[in-house]
């Protein structure tokens, strides 16, 4: 089971939009049941990320203690294929 942490400024707005889009893509690609999602504020990432396998966020984070992938593409659709590929690679590790 891979643990994914999704973060944005307040852990409410853009992270929820990213989370729901990402969840749909993961499930559509056969990852259902193989991952867990959690959501937090960007300020909590340094302390929380060590217990996660991957962090996806809508803003840069300085002290991430797990692999990090920028999640803006889930909002705009631009570069989404690349972002999704990177996430798949992390989940298959």
């Amino acid at each position: 089971m891979k643990k994914i942490l999704v973060a944005c400024g307040a852990g409410v707005c853009t992270s929820t939009a990213v989370l729901s889009k990402m969840k749909k893509i993961l499930d559509d690609n056969g990852f259902k049941g193989q991952y867990e999602l959690a959501q937090c504020k960007i300020a909590e990432v340094p302390s929380k990320s060590s217990s996660f396998d991957l962090c996806v966020a809508t803003t840069m984070v300085s002290e991430v203690k797990c692999p990090f992938i920028m999640g803006i593409a889930f909002l705009t659709g631009r570069g989404l294929e690349d972002t999704v590929k990177k996430i798949f690679t992390e989940l298959k590790k």
Binding site: V12, C13, T14, T16, A17, S20, K21, F74, L75, T76
Partner: peptide
């Protein structure tokens, strides 16, 4: 938070 974030998700799509 929740129903209104759905609104954001709809807009982005």
């Amino acid at each position: 938070a929740h129903s209104q974030v759905e609104f954001l998700q709809t807009l982005m799509t």
